[in-house]
Design a protein around this nucleic acid. Structure first.
Lengths: 342, 342
DNA sequence: AGCGTCTCTGAAAGCCTTTTCGGTTCGTTT
DNA sequence: AAACGAACCGAAAAGGCTTTCAGAGACGCT
């Protein structure tokens, strides 16, 4: 196969290669390629063709050195394993990729030392900004105010109110979840949720209680805190049915819990959604669509959180920075496990 | 709070700032900080202290420009959503992070155009190498031989044998899965697996059949291809039990399928693992540990695939590159769903 | 004293691009 | 014909770092 032009192994073409081939100076070549106006159309064309022939790509490293801005940002996750980081990361990557910003990915594995190390390394690479993604919505230690670049915290807010944090609105999520159940005509609603040490569990419960209070109702029993697992969902449901056999809806703190809840409901002869409506949290496809019936769930719009964080960082790099904690709304995704009482 | 030295908002300190403060030239400062031998111990100390005072971090951008190597690599995933990319990505990030290499993350979202665009952008940033992570083990189009930097393909191998690809050994995985069931004394083994259009499904079936043949056995019925879902697991199990009620083990193509299988087995009164042993594939924690009983599964060691890819790329950057498809072994993680026949 | 040998230091070049600014070439005006 | 703009082009500096090479002292030797 004839390979006409490509510089197969040698160093990639530089601007002066292009200039030489086009018979102009590097300055002119630069201007021609960057659309500067100081160059005759015909010359510009010659330069462009030369660049094409050499498959010239401007060296962003050199450009970054000169400009003082590298067009890169650091994405610091505390925990890639957790499934919350990924959508956020996707959203951020998406938002930046659309611009001309490249993303350095660093996983601190939940270790503060490693995180500090990554921050140093990223600053050494002269990133233009940082996004810090947490795996829980509980506040986390700030990276500090002395950093030379703007920082945006996503999902896990910074404990310093001077920082900007973007988080999902879990209180609101609790509200809209209950609102949906109320709209289905349910009035005897129980809440089985996860580890009480998680702010997310507290927030969702708070929102749920508030929405019920607005409707003049109360929860069936107390919110049942436990673990974020199917096992806890099963255990809690057994206890719930023993105490309150007349429950007509269960709001669960996670999709996993909801699966456990549905299993026990079915085993005990309660039909979902006819007798009892069930809602999950997180809208985790694998679980929601595999369960019988498919599970209605609250989606935290995490991709949007990531995109919003990216956008905020972008404007902060541009000079106008906000601060405080900004909550983004969640949404209910309705599937077969909830339906109006007939 | 008194902040003595930190350059809070100004440009970060440069080497010449350090040199000036230490009363030496930039050349000497550079040598002092990089452990070059041409510097008197006392002078070196002075420089180091000055650097400390200014919290100087060498500008990796400038360094990269000069050295021609940036210490960065591109990680190109075809699909972040899929759960296979993430562990690979973690392994790679881990392996590089230990060295002084930073990782650019790009998600092509399964789009060849976008992938091409990202490759261009990464080359513009003068990455030292690329890792291409696929979401299926089927071969994918090569990025081509004309790239100025080495490339390693992970999970999804390149269709060009001149490229280097690191993949999990799915054929071997099928073998060790069956070997484990045989070791448990099972002899009437069925195989319910996913979409036959996936090479992974074919490979695992092939390995399973080979291991059975080695033992002088055959599968109960044919491999049952379908979808990678719980629903298919349930449907296939129903058919299987109708035809072969004496089956004593089911090897499943994924953990999701296995969950469906176990649900129907339980509903039909078969005990797991006493009557029927069940094995999954992928070792996806959420599923394996939530099922009743916990699911024995084959782990593809994806983190190790990622680490191996990173390591291979590292040596390729160093100059010695391999080629071809290298398979890494998988491993059986034994849980409650398989046990010796009593 | 003169010479060579070490050890240390600093000036300068180079990496690649962008931008400024002075210079050249036209064409046009008085 | 002289002068003036306009349009175009190129030399050079800048950005921060590393490396080479030459120079400056210090020291020991003949």
């Amino acid at each position: 196969m004839a390979q006409a032009t490509g510089p197969s192994r040698s160093h990639p073409a530089t601007l002066s290669d292009v200039a030489r081939l086009a018979g102009v100076s590097v300055a002119t070549a630069s201007k021609a390629l960057n659309g500067r106006s100081q160059v005759r159309a015909e010359t510009r064309q010659r330069v462009i063709e030369a660049a094409e022939r050499l498959s010239f790509r401007p060296n962003q490293v050199a450009r970054g050195l000169l400009a003082g801005r590298t067009g890169t940002v650091g994405l610091l996750t505390s925990d890639l394993e957790g499934r919350f980081s990924i959508p956020i990361l996707m959203g951020a990557e998406d938002a930046f990729g659309a611009g001309e910003v490249a993303v350095f990915l660093c996983d601190a594995r939940g270790d503060a030392i490693r995180e500090q190390h990554h921050v140093r390394a990223l600053l050494g690479r002269r990133v233009d900004g940082l996004i810090v993604v947490g795996s829980r919505t509980d506040p986390r230690p700030s990276l500090g105010r002395e950093l030379p670049v703007p920082v945006v915290y996503a999902y896990a807010p910074s404990d310093d109110p001077e920082d900007l944090s973007i988080v999902p609105d879990n209180v609101g999520a609790g509200r809209i979840a209950v609102d949906h159940l109320l709209a289905c005509g349910r009035t005897r609603i129980a809440h089985i949720t996860g580890d009480p040490g998680y702010l997310a569990a507290q927030d969702r419960a708070e929102g749920a209680l508030a929405a019920l209070a607005d409707a003049g109702l109360v929860l069936v029993g107390q919110p049942r805190f436990g673990a974020w697992s199917e096992g806890w969902g099963r255990a809690a449901t057994a206890m719930l049915l023993d105490r309150h056999p007349d429950v007509d809806a269960v709001l669960c703190g996670s999709d996993q819990i909801a699966r456990g809840v549905m299993d026990v409901l079915r085993e005990r002869g309660h039909r979902v959604p006819e007798d009892v409506a069930v809602m999950g949290f997180d809208n985790w496809r694998v679980l929601t669509s595999a369960s019988r019936p498919p599970l209605t769930s609250v989606d935290m719009n995490l991709e949007q959180v990531g995109r919003a964080a990216a956008h905020a960082l972008f404007t902060a790099i541009g000079g106008t920075s906000r601060s405080g904690v900004e909550s983004l709304p969640c949404r209910v995704v309705i599937r077969g496990s909830t339906a109006p009482l007939s």
